[in-house]
Amino acid sequence: MAGLVPAIHVLRLRFKTWIPATSAGMTPLHHGFTPPLSRAKDPAMIKRIEARFEQCRAEGRAALVTYVMAGDPDPETSLAILKSLPRAGADIVEFGLPFTDPMADGPAIQAAGLRALKVGQDTVKTLDLIRRFRAEDQDTPVILMGYFNPIFVYGVDRFLADAKDAGVDGLIVVDLPPEEDDELCLPALKAGLAFIRLATPTTDDHRLPAVLANTAGFVYYVSITGITGAATPDFGKVASAVERIKHHTPLPVVVGFGVKSGAHAAAVAKGADGVVVGSALIDVLKGTLDDQDRATSRTVEAVTTLVKELSEGVRSVSKRAAA
């Protein structure tokens, strides 16, 4: 590069305003992390997650984790779907908190969020749906998954109190890496909610300890570098990535992104403690809507049919030998 430049130019540093607030070459990984909390103060919520993984282990199989968007295509239908999921074989349910700008999601989940927002879904209503689910089901862990802005605007303390009261067990917030743990992760752990972290193919061994430090409940391994609903992962690589993560944590490791069928679920279940499916369910849901994006008589059933297939896939793999 410097070869492009006549030597006469080389002497002067041009940006006089540059004040080195950060020293050159520092490894930012060592900055801004708060030491791990040993255990959440109120483990009631995290217990529900632990118990569910314990139960799956006892049955010698991986867990099935399903994701649907709260309020999609309307609140009552999404509640009916939520209630149907455990009966169809889901072990843990993730409920999406709609957001206008989901920067890590593909078209299916983006559209689901916009459908929900269009019919007036908001954070208060989402927590209400969970409360109604919890009134009938005290055992299935509920994980709220979304982006930070709606939570930040709701108010972190108020949100944690209301989420806990509604029966939420854990949170996955896509745009909060460990560097921002002060924002929600640490308050959530103090409040007794699991903060479930995403580990990705770009999270190397150097970074893993930081990513795992304040996580609880389980670790969510994102099988691809990419957005939801896009590529199908290389299942062999996924299994070795899970192995690598397990060297660093006793927590269960579930795998998501790109799982679309019972066969995929079975392939992932071989190497992981759980399998997450989202976009595929939302695609099926979308396929049943009328031309104005309203639910039809087939909507709930179409989703549960796929969940049953996924559940059979997960259950077809015995993990007893490995245990």
Binding site: L198, P201, T225, G226
Partner: peptide, 9 residues
Amino acid sequence: RFVAETLMP
């Protein structure tokens, strides 16, 4: 730095 973990590295 409010980004997905994939981008942090």
